[in-house]
Design a protein around this nucleic acid. Sequence first.
DNA 1: CTGTTAGCGCCTTCAA
DNA 2: TTGAAGGCGCTAACAG
Lengths: 355, 355
Amino acid sequence: MPTTIREVARRAGVGVATVSRVLNNSGFVSTQSRQSVLQAVSDLNYVPNPTARRLSLGKTFTIAVIVPFFTRPSFVERLRGIDSVLAESDYDMIVFNVETTQRRDKFFTEVPRRDRADGVIIVTLTPTDGQVAVFEESGVPVVLVDSDHPRLPSVREDSVLGGRLATQHLIDLGHRKIAYLSDVLDDVFKSAAASARRQTGYQQAMREAGLPLNEAYLKSGRHSREEARRCAAELLTLPDRPTAIFAASDTQAIGVMEAARDLGMRVPEDVSVVGYDDLDIADYLGLTTVRQSLFESGRRGAELLLHAIEQPHRNTRDAPVHELMPLELVVRQSCIRLSADDAPRMTHDPSHATN
Amino acid sequence: MPTTIREVARRAGVGVATVSRVLNNSGFVSTQSRQSVLQAVSDLNYVPNPTARRLSLGKTFTIAVIVPFFTRPSFVERLRGIDSVLAESDYDMIVFNVETTQRRDKFFTEVPRRDRADGVIIVTLTPTDGQVAVFEESGVPVVLVDSDHPRLPSVREDSVLGGRLATQHLIDLGHRKIAYLSDVLDDVFKSAAASARRQTGYQQAMREAGLPLNEAYLKSGRHSREEARRCAAELLTLPDRPTAIFAASDTQAIGVMEAARDLGMRVPEDVSVVGYDDLDIADYLGLTTVRQSLFESGRRGAELLLHAIEQPHRNTRDAPVHELMPLELVVRQSCIRLSADDAPRMTHDPSHATN
DNA sequence: CTGTTAGCGCCTTCAA
DNA sequence: TTGAAGGCGCTAACAG
């Protein structure tokens, strides 16, 4: 139904090559021809058939984004960041939502093909060495966002720093018994690299402050409010319970607040809480948290990818870039200052006797 | 780089047509040939070039989804629903995120072309009659999700019913002074059809209960917590303030709760609140709300579209289907029963302080 | 400068 | 049953 280049050529009284030339600004076209072509194009409301173009050019003009919608509510911002770059480019964004490992592996093997996409962005998931090898063989540039691998370019936050930021904040407030609730090696994606790094940051901060690392203060659960609630309940009913809990995500931090509420404890009077992500709701809840550059991470990832696509000569052996996005501690009202000598019972508000 | 059908043919010792036949199950192939082709395909790890296939078949095998990421946090569920259907089909999902009216109109005119997509799903946005006419001319099936238009198939909730559900609940609890905070004709997308319908439901319920419709109890603001907070503050400082507020979304309901908190009022003791959407956080906040079938709406929309694509003979003049998805009132703790004679100060349980 | 023509890779008549 | 060949619409050599 749509017009073809041939019809435009006929109407403009020129050859198809000339039409193609003006449409692609290849130059070497007389003002005369250019004019009539442009006129015909506009008369016929002509738009080149993208599929034919792709076949002829041997490019797909599409970027595949493989992303698990549900590991974190924050993925939307990352997608927006990616989209903000691609929308301005010639590339379409085709989205592959991963909800099972099978699907993930299917996408990992089927999507990175030259005839399927010109580039791939993988969000939050981490491919295995074997999968990466296949990517390299395919010749399709792949960029990781919120994840990383030694042989692939990546954009992520400095999770160790994030862990330190949160922990140090609590230490500065006088807390000594600080628990860390990690976003565990999820059954499905076991990609808790970030969470593990945050834990490292947590431990570094504790150690540097000369504070003991209490094994009992380490819990790990899935990225869900319910599971965090259970874990937090265990922490808060420990004989020597922590005075503060640092959760690997806001979602989990909310679970912690829920657990506290269940136990009749108040936040921050009875227990301080720090989250991670700075979801919209964190503001309403007064949750102190670590804010990531979500949108930016997506934007940068897309930029790196487009760059890689345009620099096909870049040797695969070169060390891929690994960018770290800035982090920011957002202080709100979920943490309280403790008196110098860490006394769990001596809360700031003496009117409330614990235990 | 990838293998072509010709190589497969050569290796299998047959013609390309035969290879094509077995790959597409066109039949009329000897078991003999089939075997060798299958063998060659597997040996070479051959996968047909999608672009070439599309060009040859005159189909794009892609579905375009035009969606404003940010009108509501709920869009993700709808996308998932759409994806759940497309992932099982031969179609790729290419996403167009709309953040400005310019972009929306650009997509509306550029995307629905036969050579660009085999079908289009528009989420939450409502095209104009003129745009719909262009869609029809293009011959590309279009389905609306969370929106509607007389000439296009659509899937949405029964917003009038939703408005009634929420309002009736408050009336049943003895409230008489009920305010409605609508999701206004947003500056950018002015597509508050749903909100307007909910308002109709609200008014119907009020009227049927013989309650007066107080103009002062109608406020409209954008779909944001901040704006809702401002509007709610106005409502709550009215000389004869409402005892309950029904907000057009959970996001706005949270803004209402925020306003109450600002004014030192408690929810539900001093003011009852009902939201809409049932976001994850509504549970934690104990917010009574109306739950939509988000995922289902996307799923149904995609199903309708695929159906339309496979039934190209269906006359455009036929009346398009308009499906309504079920709604459910989720009762939590944000509403309180009022004594028979509407007394705003007579709270139910003063002993229970929230937050 | 410009038209003709040969692909891009696949599907599909059309003979054989 | 099967292979050869044309065509999908566009780009890019290659001769003028």
